[in-house]
Amino acid sequence: MLTITNLHASVGDRPILKGIDLSIKAGEVHAIMGPNGSGKSTLSYILAGREGYTVTEGSVTYKGEDLLALPPERRAAAGVFLAFQYPVEIPGVSNSTFLKTALNAVRRQRGEAELDAMQFLKLARTKCKQLGMTDEMLKRAVNVGFSGGEKKRNDILQMALLDPRLTILDETDSGLDIDALRIVADGVNSLRGPERAMLVITHYQRLLSYIVPDHVHVLAFGKIQRSGGKELALELEARGYAEFGVNEAA
């Protein structure tokens, strides 16, 4: 589903990703772990299409298409979804307007009928309930005044509505309390399936005990240093990143 080949990228003239190779097949869940500043969010932004990153070498294909050639909205329509490490606040735009505009934009691009206000509200309320969110959060401005955990849930609500094929979760677990973690993990797991894939970025083994990965990768210094099965996450939790030349105390 997703093939990343020898990906090099920089911000300004500072190289951050230095040759990433990663292949994710439909039905698989991959986890990426790695020290702060190693380039995990950079990779997720490049996959989602954020401006300001220059791909200097390599390629990314998604369902056989050159993903990097698409603007962010086309990637979203094609089924790529990024849950942000830091969801953005948008004053003055109500969450429900945002969600409805996004959902209908995606449906339109997918050749599906748009939902009217009633249909949307019904759907949004159902999804809200599943994620333990109140209807009141639909009325408020997007993420404005939301707690850290509420922002993360709001991102998962967007995921549930947009029905993605490739979901990238960038530290979705950080800031979530134990119950919220379970609710979010359930939401994510309900989107697992033979035709979907996931890339889960996290610092903690705990999320991976709920969303069990097929493969775990260690990203450090802009490169995937090691890959393994789900037991690699446990090993990292115990030993840290020292063996990859990262001094954790620094």
Partner: peptide, 13 residues
């Protein structure tokens, strides 16, 4: 710019 990207990443052109 952050808000622009957030909206576009959700499918809005």
């Amino acid at each position: 710019e952050d808000a622009m990207f957030y909206l576009r990443a959700r499918g809005i052109d």
